[in-house]
Each structure stands twice: as structure tokens, then as C-alpha cells.
């Protein structure tokens, strides 16, 4: 199963990277989101996959999942949320100001 998930993560990274290199600003943001998903999955997988019980003390037995990566990923998701929404607003403003979301046209003059 780990192989399957690692390969899936690799594909997500590829797609995310491809989107980062695109010319449309929305696609770049999409790429950023895809890569964050992939990273969250990677952290969880690295800690060992386990379909046991949830990390609650009264439920936990010998096969409960590891709570630490959960806490780490939760923090990452929230920070990612903040960053992504900031990026979205930035892209929105860029579009409003320059009337394009084409990064090639947003280059500005040479020698900057």
C-alpha cells in the first residue's frame, strides 16, 4: 500500500510542479494547493499508515494512530489556508490592476 501512496504523492508533485510553471496565475495557485495536499499526505504516510482507532485516549488501544503527525499536519493545513487565501487575493488584485492573469504580460519592463 505504501508504494501506491508514494507513487500517488509523486504524481501530485508532478502535477503541482507543472502547474507552477504555467502562465496563468490561477494555475500557479492551483499548483501551490496541489503540492500542499501532497505534502500533508506525505507526512501522514511517513509516520506509518494505520487504519486503527482515532487518537482519542478513551478509544486508544494498541492499534490507534499516531497523534503527533496529526497535530503537525493540522498546523500545516491552517497555515496553508492562510497562505493560499492571501495568494488568491493577491492574484485577484493583480488582475484588477493589470487586467490580465498572464504572467508573461505581468513581467514588466526589462532591467528591473
Amino acid at each position: 500500500m505504501e508504494y501506491l501512496i508514494f507513487i500517488a504523492i509523486g504524481v501530485l508533485f508532478s502535477v503541482g510542479t507543472y502547474l507552477l510553471l504555467c502562465r496563468s496565475l490561477l494555475k500557479v495557485i492551483g499548483g501551490f494547493m496541489v503540492i500542499s495536499h501532497a505534502v500533508h499526505m506525505l507526512i501522514l504516510t511517513m509516520a506509518g499508515l494505520n487504519t486503527g482507532s482515532a487518537p482519542l485516549v478513551d478509544l486508544s488501544g494498541s492499534d490507534s494512530t499516531d497523534p503527533l503527525p496529526h497535530a503537525v499536519i493540522l498546523t500545516a493545513i491552517v497555515i496553508g489556508f492562510g497562505l493560499t487565501s492571501f495568494l488568491i487575493v493577491l492574484a485577484y488584485r493583480t488582475y484588477k490592476a493589470h487586467k490580465t492573469d498572464d504572467l508573461e504580460k505581468l513581467r514588466g519592463a526589462d532591467n528591473e
Binding site: V78, G82, S85, V89, Y92, K96
Partner: peptide
């Protein structure tokens, strides 16, 4: 903080 931030982001764009 979370309620405030999420609402500020949504409403600001909407108002604009």
C-alpha cells in the same frame, strides 16, 4: 481569530 480572518477574507472580496 479563525472566524474573523475567514470572514474578513471573504467579505472584503465580496465588498470590492
Amino acid at each position: 481569530v479563525v472566524v474573523g480572518a475567514a470572514m474578513v477574507i471573504m467579505l472584503t472580496i465580496a465588498d470590492d
